[in-house]
Nucleic acid binder design. Sequence first.
DNA 1: TATGAATGAGTGTTCATTCAT
DNA 2: CATGAATGAACACTCATTCAT
Lengths: 215, 215, 215, 215
Amino acid sequence: MSSTTAAEPRAPKLRADATRNRERIIAAAREVFVEVGADAPLDEIARRAGIGNATLYRNFPNRDALIREVALFVKARILARAETAMAEHPDAFDALQSFVHGAADEQLGALCPVISGRFDHNDPDLAEIRERLVVIVTELMERAQRSGGLRPDVAPGDIFVAISQLTRPLPGTACLDLSGFVHRHLQLFLDGLRAPARSTLPGRALTFEDFQQQH
Amino acid sequence: MSSTTAAEPRAPKLRADATRNRERIIAAAREVFVEVGADAPLDEIARRAGIGNATLYRNFPNRDALIREVALFVKARILARAETAMAEHPDAFDALQSFVHGAADEQLGALCPVISGRFDHNDPDLAEIRERLVVIVTELMERAQRSGGLRPDVAPGDIFVAISQLTRPLPGTACLDLSGFVHRHLQLFLDGLRAPARSTLPGRALTFEDFQQQH
Amino acid sequence: MSSTTAAEPRAPKLRADATRNRERIIAAAREVFVEVGADAPLDEIARRAGIGNATLYRNFPNRDALIREVALFVKARILARAETAMAEHPDAFDALQSFVHGAADEQLGALCPVISGRFDHNDPDLAEIRERLVVIVTELMERAQRSGGLRPDVAPGDIFVAISQLTRPLPGTACLDLSGFVHRHLQLFLDGLRAPARSTLPGRALTFEDFQQQH
Amino acid sequence: MSSTTAAEPRAPKLRADATRNRERIIAAAREVFVEVGADAPLDEIARRAGIGNATLYRNFPNRDALIREVALFVKARILARAETAMAEHPDAFDALQSFVHGAADEQLGALCPVISGRFDHNDPDLAEIRERLVVIVTELMERAQRSGGLRPDVAPGDIFVAISQLTRPLPGTACLDLSGFVHRHLQLFLDGLRAPARSTLPGRALTFEDFQQQH
DNA sequence: TATGAATGAGTGTTCATTCAT
DNA sequence: CATGAATGAACACTCATTCAT
């Protein structure tokens, strides 16, 4: 996944420190981005990670590089949620519901605006994980549509938009303020997704690409 | 509503410039806040309004005062949408749907995060318009629930959260990027609101006060 | 004294307003300069005088012109104090003491720093009143020296420096904070001025010109 | 006194730059405050110290923090003057005179208005040095009163007011303009302080606390 | 290599002065 | 002629990024 995974056999000791720093930075960055937003002071992230600011810059030459790593990290976790959901729920719509609520717990909504706009659509690492995510969510939805649980006029992009929008915290607020209600409104949206459709939707079904253009 | 509506017949001439500037500032502020967010440079707003920055400060001594006026302006328009919706649609759920889509067109979603947090809950002008909004939306929903169109386990706060979240643009993006799909996802949410309820919702119904605490 | 005293016979009515405005501005300026200092916002002076800011600028094209008028006004009052002191006190040193305490009451100390530095030494009105002040204070001091009350190694500039310095309020403070003690320290200084001299003074006696170079 | 005196032997190298900068900033601040006053542009201080403005802010997060350090620095030097004066002069009034002229040379007069008003009376460092100053000046004066050199109706506050007022430069002027005469007028004041008293003073003797309330 | 410090560009806000009514 | 409004320049302070140790 990461480009520094298996290469040089030398300097293994230094790497112990280095990778621990990387992880601490990414964790701190995720926290701070969720709380403060994409414009969070990088010094604050460094402080929260317990390192000097220049160390942060050594690991991630600019804000976008850091955001990229956070994106990779979070998408990997969301992918894992999808895999778990599919494995654990025999009913396809149940699996979809489980995935939606699980992705919300990964704070996808809080992080989408952070990532948004700064996205390098050609980044191979991101492309790979995105592709895997597309595949599994498409599979999840098609199963649910075939089983008659999910209305037929929706596509993966619709799901991701709903998750990211309905779970976004308000800026300047710690993420949890509305979170007591997040699952409630996701559930209302999921109820709207059930077959049979109760209305004719305007627009067209959103592909994952539509969503990715935004995020 | 506005304090400059019909009152003093004197000194209309001097006011001509001033009020035109005020209006231009508010319009520019709304635009810029929607596009850039609550931290938008005030100089940019001044530039967009075609005035000097100090003129902006003369009219609105600080950012919050400006945001307050934008809030008043937008809430007034949303109130008007609610009144229109109620008047024009004999079916109560239709009226509710019309209101929801109309409020989205007023960019409520874009402006909620702007207003959020900086809200002076004691401001009498804001309190008044908020109160009128509460009354009419409550009425709309209760009618729809009595007529069997709307599920009984939801309250006004749920509606406002949905509107504001599902219509929020991504930061750093002109508002319209997702807007082609906004009504689509609102419609999915509205489908989830229809009676009979297709699930048991977690949490409790949100009152308008719950929503206001956020916005 | 003023250059607008006796001239044009026309427009006497307008002048009534105009001169009342002038006086109110000067009074307000004196107050505000004493309270806030030489950098006081001119808008505050206009506000305190109950006029618009542009009216202030019409009367006094810039800060220095306003300060000049305040200087003239205050010096005229101090001159009057000197004349009164000389007339009322048979003993020359008593007269000097009376003058010193009286000048302090005119807030000379507060206003010297306002005036200082912006002085136009060629201004004929100021020159005239300055000259009259020099003459009378010199007379006061020479009498006191001849009568053996005042030590011989001091000159008018020494007196004025003492008054202005010992009565200066601290910046950012309303003038009166130390004022309970001003006369106390002036009195100590006056005790040091009495003959016979208790020390040999460093430097040379200050003329009024020495003082004027500062103020 | 200073928290960087003798303590940590580690990390002396990095500190070399930093402390040199701190010292240069304090020196420049003292200069500029004396010349321009408490409202001096901090950018000018940074420029004079030969550093970037943000470096100044890194060392002193706001104007008051900088003023505090200047106050500490200057008070320490004045305290040293008092100790020297007491040690070197067998006659108590001579010692007092030496202290007064010495404190004037430290530009106490110029800096009192800078410090004034922004004083945090609870600051422990400032409280400590203030206390030591009170003790030694009280001692100086009581000795001089016991030896019959100093009139009995004065107290430390009277001395400090005289020093600070008589040595204050005019704003907008380099401090030295009047300085040729400062010692002359201080000497006149000191002559007024000698026993026997030549008048009955109005008001009451000023304690150091009276003075501190101002500065 | 990791760090703390330095930097300069950017933003909010104030105020003296000018302009239009 | 008096006024309120408009203006731009100035300053405090923040933050991303670079440098020296």
